[in-house]
Design a protein around this nucleic acid. Structure first.
Length: 511
RNA sequence: GUCUCCUUCGUCUAGUGGUUAGGACACCGGGUUUUCAUCCCGGCAACAGGGGUUCGACUCCCCUAGGAGAUGCCA
């Protein structure tokens, strides 16, 4: 019976599984740890992740660290940290492991050597002994001559093995057909065709240091890891046909391709440092929350119905579809991201927001690290009045510093309300102080009507009555709602600061 | 230079032959209000251009223009 099962499996089921009929979606995010995770990479990661989740597929993380020159350990840590922060968990990859281990290319070099060797054996690739010097000289010459043909001149393509120079560690190059054309189907773009003569002339597959280039490693690993769909940025379109050629040379079936629109800066160029923050780390330091990042980025090149704009990651995991991805590149809009951020901050509970802002207050020296019990309490109490005012978490420091520290008095000109002078302002402050006798217990309405009545009596507007108090106590013309702020601070400190302002006003009035 | 891809308000986008071309951000007005913010109301603003196909094109086809990307022993 057991043998019979195996027989059935081999005869019927295995071919079907191999043809992919039952094969579920397997996608990967394959970053190169050469720098901090940036918006473009995160977008690719997100779309791959969402596609996998929406299809009940597998999301794989693979580290493409084949460039030993540019590899950075901190970049790798930043990658894990960023994925974690955004909530993009991978099913297979480093740390988690999986059935296709290892997921770090530098640990798979034997594989690439082996497969490059196969290509040489089958005549699809060849060793090239040209030195980097010769190649750069060649390129310089082509540039100078304005040559129509740019790139490697295929010098070693038909080299007799016996003529190979000794002592030179060769690279392995792909033998790209000289004639014909190669096409592949992109899920978004349709069929993309390229004449073989326009494909990069015999690109390097295996470098002289024994490491593979992206082209080889990517094709070998995607095949070995059973990747079914490749979602990557459109900057890879030109090498699509090249990869197809590689799959063919190996006799493998290529995965499906879906090239994602690029993320641009406001000037239409590929998003870079000069447009503003690009690394996720920078966004975190400014106080963006992951919900806003995920929501905004998901809408960069994708939309649900053009109307709905708020999506949690969990919702996106269900709703995401490749069909709704846009073809055209999109400009990264910092303002809209900020708007999303404000929205998600407003959604936070007191507890959540407290945990989010404390690190910023500590960082900016507004409170001690760790905060004292008094500071903890103040943070708890101030949350309701800062919540709807924050767009970026880092703004909390400037907004609430006056609650924790003594603040400098603004210049006299900023304390004196419009249409008033120093003498009147001093008068206002004196009256205001008197009105605040029971401020810690009176409610806003009572205080306000009291101030309103006094303002009428003095012949000024309510605003003119309040502004000097605001300036004196918060050190700024802009602050959270005044009465609440005063209560947070406590009568003693409030009156002290008002007295100080009053003194300045009186001496100013004597001038 | 060559090759490939792209093209709806300033920006992100909806729209798949017949719509007053819709929404959001930004911006500008107004309201609420104690400054700021939130919130509410209103406004501005787009089918790159030219040819076809069609009774009828933002929608289909062609050309032009513009933009982007690629052209590495980087990914």
């Amino acid at each position: 019976m057991f043998l019979f099962s195996i027989y059935i499996y081999v005869l019927f089921l295995y071919p079907i599984i191999k043809r992919g009929v039952f094969m579920s979606v397997r996608v990967r995010y394959a970053p190169s740890p050469t720098g901090l995770q940036h918006i473009g990479g995160v977008r690719t990661a997100l779309f791959n992740y969402l596609f996998a989740r929406s299809q009940g597929g597998t999301f794989i993380l693979r580290i493409e660290d084949t460039d030993r020159e540019r590899f950075r350990q901190d970049a790798l840590e930043d990658l894990f940290d960023t994925m974690d922060w955004l909530g993009l968990s991978w099913d297979e990859g480093p740390i988690t492991g999986g059935s296709c281990e290892p997921y770090v290319q530098s640990q798979r070099i034997d594989l690439y050597t082996e497969y490059a060797g196969k290509l040489v054996e089958t005549g699809n690739a060849y060793p090239c002994y040209c030195t980097p010097e010769r190649l750069s000289a060649l390129r310089a010459q082509q540039e100078q001559n304005k040559s129509a043909f740019v790139g490697y001149d295929r010098h070693c393509r038909d080299l007799d093995p016996t003529d190979a120079p000794g002592g030179v560690k060769p690279v392995i190059r792909l033998k790209v057909p000289l004639d014909g054309e190669t096409a592949f189907t992109d899920l978004l773009m349709g069929t993309i065709t390229r004449a073989n003569r326009d494909i990069s002339p015999d690109p390097v597959l295996l470098k002289s240091d024994g490491f593979p280039t992206y082209h080889l490693a990517n094709v070998v690993d995607d095949h070995l890891m059973g990747i079914t769909h490749i979602l990557r940025a459109q900057e890879w379109i030109p090498s699509g046909p090249l990869h197809v050629l590689l799959y063919r040379a190996f006799g493998w079936e290529a995965p499906k391709y879906c090239h994602l629109p690029m993320v641009m800066g406001h000037d239409g160029q590929k998003l870079s440092k000069r447009h503003g923050s690009t690394s996720v780390q920078e966004f975190r330091e400014q106080g963006y929350v992951p919900e806003a990042m995920v929501n905004y980025i998901s809408l960069l090149g994708w939309s649900w119905d053009g109307e709905r704009e708020f999506f949690t990651r969990e919702e996106l995991e269900k709703l995401f579809t490749l069909e709704k991805i846009n073809k055209a590149p999109g400009v990264f809009d910092y303002k809209k991201l900020e708007w999303f951020n404000g929205h998600y901050i407003r959604q936070k509970s007191t507890k959540e927001l407290k945990d989010l802002i404390i690190p910023f207050l500590e960082r900016d020296g507004v409170i001690a690290s760790p905060p004292s019990p008094e500071e903890q309490e103040m943070v708890d109490r101030m949350i309701p009045i800062v919540r709807e005012r924050l767009h970026l978490l880092k703004d909390v420091s400037d907004m609430t510093r006056f609650l924790f520290q003594d603040v400098a008095l603004p210049p006299a000109s900023e304390i004196i309300p419009k249409k008033c002078d120093a003498a009147v302002t001093a008068d206002i402050l004196a009256h205001a102080a008197a009105l605040l006798e029971d401020m810690d217990t009176a409610d806003d309405e009572v205080l306000e009507s009291r101030f309103r009545a006094k303002a009428d009596e003095l012949g000024v507007k309510l605003g003119a009555m309040l502004m000097p108090v605001r300036s004196a106590v918060t050190g700024s013309k802009v602050s959270p709602p005044l009465f609440e702020s005063l209560r947070l601070l406590g009568k003693q400190r409030v009156l002290l600061r008002m007295q100080r302002a009053l003194d300045v006003m009186t001496s100013e009035a004597r001038k």
